[in-house]
């Protein structure tokens, strides 16, 4: 391993969050695809063919990646950070609006990350704010305010770690629902097949139960 450049560019929180979200949905799709392939293989084997389906192998996301992904998304989408009210267009507009103020790169990055709406917040980020900008402080704050959407988006709004768990729960639920859909298509046929494929001891019990119900 060799470090070519430890800090080649700075990233805003928004960029990192969208990258992580993309990664998560990618991973979800892959898991779903792998599940489907596995199922197809199972039914194929049940029908008598022992030929495993050749497909692309499932690249599993490592435990470390999952951990940091979930935790970082949890932090970045917490309600005390402004990300839920930010959008790509808003940030682009904000950066353009800030261009004439001679702010340093780091100051602009922090304004984008923290979206200060109060003067006191801006004082912390920008050095010697008063001497440099005087009465233009309010202008800067207006630019920031304009870049934020008024209401946080409900769909992406997650609240800390608790919110995160519910978020993953929701995605898991959607997987389950999708599976149910496929079940329904030709429900009985596949269901019977699955029961006979099952080698477990629960197989017979399940059948008995169904008989009782009838």
């Amino acid at each position: 391993m060799e470090v070519v450049n430890p800090r080649s560019a700075l990233l805003s929180n928004y960029e990192v969050l969208s990258l992580l979200r993309e990664l998560e949905s990618d991973n979800l799709l892959r898991t779903k695809a792998a599940l489907r392939i596995k199922k197809e293989e199972e039914t194929a084997n049940g029908a008598g063919s022992s030929l495993p389906l050749a497909g692309n192998p499932h690249l599993e996301a490592s435990e470390n990646l999952r951990t940091i992904e979930v935790e970082a998304i949890g932090y970045l989408s917490a309600d005390y950070l402004p990300i839920t009210a930010q959008s790509e267009d808003g940030i682009t507009k904000l950066v353009r609006g800030l261009a004439p103020y001679n702010l340093t790169k780091a100051e602009k990055l922090q304004i984008v990350n923290l979206a200060p709406t109060l003067p006191v917040e801006l004082y912390v980020i920008v050095e010697e704010l008063e001497e440099r900008f005087g009465d233009r402080i309010d202008e800067i704050l207006e630019h920031v305010q304009a870049s934020l959407t008024s209401g946080p988006k409900e769909s992406t709004l997650t609240n800390g770690i608790n919110g995160q768990t519910s978020y993953t729960a929701v995605t898991e639920a959607s997987v389950v629902v999708q599976e149910d859909d496929t079940w329904d298509e030709d429900a009985d046929a596949i269901y019977d097949e699955e029961i006979f494929d099952d080698t477990g001891a629960g197989n017979g019990v399940e059948g008995d139960l169904e008989m009782d119900e009838d």
Partner: peptide, 18 residues
């Protein structure tokens, strides 16, 4: 957050050739 450029030699297991 920032971007770091790294160089490394990575091994791919045959099971992932697909």
């Amino acid at each position: 957050f920032c971007l770091s450029i790294l160089k490394d030699t990575v091994a791919i297991h045959p099971s992932n050739f697909g």
